[in-house]
Amino acid sequence: MCLGVSLGMCLVALSGVRCAGSTGDHRLRFQGAVTGSGAAGVTALGWTLALERFVVAWGPTRVYSDAPIARARTRPRSLLAGLSVGTAWAQHCHGCPRAPVAELGFERGGSVLRAVDLLAPSPSPLGAANARNGLYRSVSFAFPGGSAVPDGGVVGAMLGGHSMVVRGTATRGAVSIPFEGSLDFNTQGGEDGAPTRPYTVYGVAFDRPEGLHLEATQEATDRVVVRVELARFFDQADFGSLPEPSEPGRPRAITAASQVATAWRLGVRDPRSYRVGWTGAGGSGEPRPGPQPAPDAGP
């Protein structure tokens, strides 16, 4: 009996024991925000844009530890890649995708898709990040179908079920072309063409090309800010190729098959269309405007 009582007391005492030490990796807490480069901009083909509306269905934003110029892989190269052997540890993801060091757009396990007005005077919040310490080096953005965005209020209404909506005027020389249009990102197809996931852009540098190693954050003040260079989206667009509107006075429509729409998609995919800044320790602060594109020889 004495033995049992002694052991019981030991167990009660042990229940309060917390093993000293850490597994090394730990959570970080910070916020995210996205903003546009402004209503005015100049494309590489010399078109000066004056934007009146630019609304985007914004999906998950993820930060990875790999190099930004590398095309991100969603799966490891090979399950048979055995570099060495060790005692191995619990992991049950067969063919796991790479995990990000930070992820915005998920709250309490569920995805949060947002309708974002990139012409808003202040950055639009992306919510709190699920994040851990590590090397922050490259960023990806996912653009879902607009219909996937839940009721987003006024901004959501402007989306009208599309992934991106734009309206503005493009001017070059004496030519001024009002335009409007939308992009619909069918989710990227799998091997059988069936949609699998939102359209994702990879390889954007986090604050600087070599990345930033984050070990601690100030939750109240530290945040990652994404700046979308709106004019870059249309670097290769020739607005003059847009067909005349059916009704006079109406803007020219960016149709799905138009050259402008194709250029727009290319612009969305181009990592140079985005700049990511870190406002915390070691960061460069909110992203500054990028260099103006070298004007191409236009018509």
Partner: peptide, 12 residues
């Protein structure tokens, strides 16, 4: 030479 699962690469 031990192994540890690295979630950022998806394998040990």
């Amino acid at each position: 030479n031990d192994l540890l699962f690295d979630p950022t690469v998806g394998r040990s």
